[in-house]
Each structure stands twice: as C-alpha cells, then as structure tokens.
Write a protein that binds this DNA or RNA. Structure first.
Ligand SMILES: [Zn+2]
Ligand SMILES: [Zn+2]
Ligand SMILES: [Zn+2]
Ligand SMILES: [Zn+2]
Lengths: 161, 161
DNA sequence: TCACTTTCGATATATTATACCGCGCTCGCA
DNA sequence: TGCGAGCGCGGTATAATATATCGAAAGTGA
C-alpha cells in the first residue's frame, strides 16, 4: 500500500536482468577481493536493487523479516557496511538511504541525481564534475578522501514526461 | 573537556569580528525579508558560529541549557529550520550537523571542504564546480532544486602544515 | 484594546544507527 | 580428519538524530 510503486522513470528496462547483473558482479568483486558473499549479504543486495530508488535500512529490515528470517538492525547495518566497504552499495546522505552501485568493481567517482517526484536516483560518473571538484580542492591544498555529491530535483520524465 | 578545541586551521583571524559580522548580516537578511530575528534565533546562530566546525543540534541544545535557558530538541530544530530557510545556516548532510553560511544574503552555490583532522569546514562557491554540475544535470534533462556537495579529507594545514 | 499570527515551552514519540556479547560455522592447516 | 583462529551473525540494549502535537505567551496590525 504505502509502497505501491510510483512509475519508474528510468527508461524501460529488464529489471530482472538488472538485478541478476548486480548479483553476478557482486560475486566477482567478492571473489577477487577474497571476501565472503554470504546468503544474507546477497539478499540485502537484492533488496537494495529491488528498485532504482534509495531504500532505508529499516525498510530492508522489514523485508528481511517478511522473508521469515530473524533480523535486527545490526543484521542490516552489518550487511550494508560490508557492501559499502567493497563498493557494491552507496549511501545517499541526504536521504539516509542506500542504493546499489552502478559501476561495481570499477574505480569511479559518483554523483547522484535524485528525483523528488518518483524517487529514483541515477548514479553518474561525470568526468567534468569530478575534474572541477578535484581542481577546486587542489587549489586550496585540500586532500580529498571522500565525496558526497547529490543533486535533488526532477528527472526528465517527471519534469515533463 | 571532550570539546577542548583542536587547533583551528583556518588562517588566523579575528573570530569575534567573524561572529559579529554574521549576526549583523543576519539582522539585515531578516529585515529585508520581513522575518523576525528573535533572541533565541540570534543565540542559536551565535552558537553555530562559535567555531568554523559544523555543530550538531544536540550540542547546540546543551549550550542553550548551559545558558540557563529551558530548551528541548524542538527549540533547536525550529531555530535551525528558520535559519536555514533564510539562508543563514547550512546543514552538512554527511555529518548531521550545521554551519554558518559564509555568503549570507547572496545567491550562491555551496561546496564544503571538511577536514576530518581538525573538523573545520570551508564553504566554497566555486563557479567551475557549479557549472559542471549544472551541465551534467542539464545533459540528462534533470531540473536541479537542491545541491549537496561535501568533500571530506585533510585541509592544507592538517595535511602538512 | 482586540483579533490574528507567530514564536516558544513542553511532552511524547519516531527514525536512524551503534555497542556489545556469545555462539557456531568456515577455512586454513597440522 | 581433527583443531584452532577468526569471521559472520543472532540477539539485546541503548545512543543519536529528528518530528508531531498542543497550548500558552508574545508580537503585530487595526
Ligand atoms: Zn534495473
Ligand atoms: Zn522522476
Ligand atoms: Zn571566524
Ligand atoms: Zn584540518
């Protein structure tokens, strides 16, 4: 009910393939890094990829419980922390929510375009933005370790679909 | 104790003047917009400007109580919401904290450089960054309404002062 | 002074996140 | 094949951040 999906404005796509691809990439990344891709971690990643909208930790928790599984907040946060540590999930700071990484296994910057109408978040890896940020920081002698770049507004479809 | 100030790496400056300037600008902004700059709002703004480090809502709350004033969380959040609504304070999403705006009363973009060593946050209004972001969004037909740009790392002084 | 609006005090509660403990499974290795 | 070290996870408790709501007080304009 509350979560009946507003139209997904991301160009139509085969979302099952989308999720399968994410899970396959996850297996690869973990194998390469000698990390364990457990059943729980897989399920949490799957839930994060349920849509292209950022999802909150407690929403993930509810879905785990709906699976019949016993779960508490640490269950979710541990899995999310792991998935973030290996670069499979990003945290959206302005929403306290999590989203699957669009470029798993690749070194990349990310910038998010978050639609406040349909809720979707698109991850960019825009070199001009990354470059401008790097220059701005360097100019002030600042050594960057982490970047949060989140633009909120209206996606192309919602703005005037 | 816990909050004994680590060295402030912002180039030495007369911070009293810094705070006084912020309060004066605040009066102007509120007068221009027909908003009331109450004693509480002034005190909260002063506390936000206590240093150039982002400060949490509950830290502000403690200081209000230390003044002998009765205060609860809504006291602080109302004042912060007001100050943000008139552009005198920014929220740092990646820290759940608040900082005084460096360009009150002016239309500006802002990007923050947050030092994880000394805690200071510097607000930039870098046109190249703003331009690159605007272009990246426009290219995808995205209408931007709000921007969160926060780089964490080491400031020039801390990196190798 | 009176009606109206805004600000504020106060209480309760929601939402997001972490600290900690102990068990059992996995995996490397003898 | 058995064993120990470490990791992942269930479970409980609690911390940290934020909002909903209501009524009283104070400012505002007529
Ligand atoms: Zn998809
Ligand atoms: Zn949209
Ligand atoms: Zn100053
Ligand atoms: Zn520093």
């Amino acid at each position: 009910m509350s979560s009946s999906t507003p139209h997904l404005h991301i160009a139509d796509h085969d979302h099952a393939k989308c999720v399968a691809g994410a899970l396959a990439a996850a297996r690869d990344v973990c194998a390469q890094r000698g990390e364990r891709f457990t059943e729980l971690r897989g399920r949490v990643l799957e839930l994060v990829w349920e849509s292209h909208r950022p999802i909150g930790a407690y929403a993930i928790l509810e879905r785990l419980r709906a699976d019949g599984r016993s779960a508490a907040p640490p269950t979710v946060y541990r899995a999310l922390d792991f998935l973030m540590s290996v670069g499979l999930v990003h945290r959206i700071e302005s929403l306290n929510a999590y989203i699957g990484c669009a470029h798993p296994g690749q070194r990349h910057a990310s910038q998010f375009l978050i639609c406040t109408d349909c809720g979707t978040a698109v991850e960019l890896d825009d070199p001009a933005v990354a470059g401008a940020l790097a220059q701005a920081a360097e100019k002030r002698g600042f050594k960057v370790e982490a970047r949060v770049v989140e633009l909120s507004g209206h996606c192309a479809s919602c703005a005037q679909g």
